[in-house]
Amino acid sequence: MLQTAVPLPSPAAVPSLPVAPAPAPDTAAKITASGLDFYYGPRRVLEQITLQMRRNEVTALIGPSGCGKSTFLRTLNRMNDIVPGARVEGSVVLDGRDIYAAAVDVVDLRRRVGMVFQKSNPFPKSIFDNVAYGLRINRMTRSREDLEGRVEASLRSAALWDEVKDRLHTSALALSGGQQQRLCIARALAVEPEVLLMDEPASALDPIATQRIEELIYQLKSRYTIVIVTHNMQQAARVSDVTAFFWLGRLVETGLTTKIFTAPAQKLTEDYITGRFG
């Protein structure tokens, strides 16, 4: 006899301990696309994309222009719904629920899956009203104090508070490009999303502003699931944990960023990363 059977207590037998229910492991999939096809009219622009994006990680989508990475990003919050003739097949599952299911409320989905665009798009309103916009339309605040508190917290999260706290009620359009982009991030964060989609958020910014955005992404990943589209290889290497390489509407390769950039499995990925095309 190898061992005396020490019966393991069955989970039900254990008296409930004062421990919080185990949180989902930090690296669990937050949002998963499976067999995703995307069509603009008759033209298929995404083909059988299967990709997991995990909690508290930054997933970078790279690939040449027109490869479908932005389109893919926009399928994650159903932003493509507004494009006439757009059609999706396959599934995108967020926390166990298919976001393309009939019962899903797109408005609520977009609140949970925030988005930052390539070109900063502040509304022609004051800095304060820009950040407060999502809170107001989603009726997320109970009082003026609550609203002000959340606006401040969002601006702090986006590392913009100190620069704008004395001019919250001046036009957002007077901010610099980098500040405008951080304002758009603050605006997205204000509605407490779980996922943050970023479509080339730094492509129109100078190197210093870019660096600030990258630092911000690094800080934000402890609280959000982040998916970022970028044309900048170095940026993908710096900010992301996982990289997915798209080419002609297909997902060629995905894996840990360190591996993709040092030892890609596919020749195509290597050629792209080393700048042989694209």
Binding site: V107, D108, N121, G134, N138, V191
Partner: peptide
């Protein structure tokens, strides 16, 4: 610009 519209939609605004 269409990006303005999209910005609002992305925050959970209805059309």
């Amino acid at each position: 610009p269409g990006t303005m519209r999209e910005g609002a939609l992305a925050l959970g605004a209805t059309h």
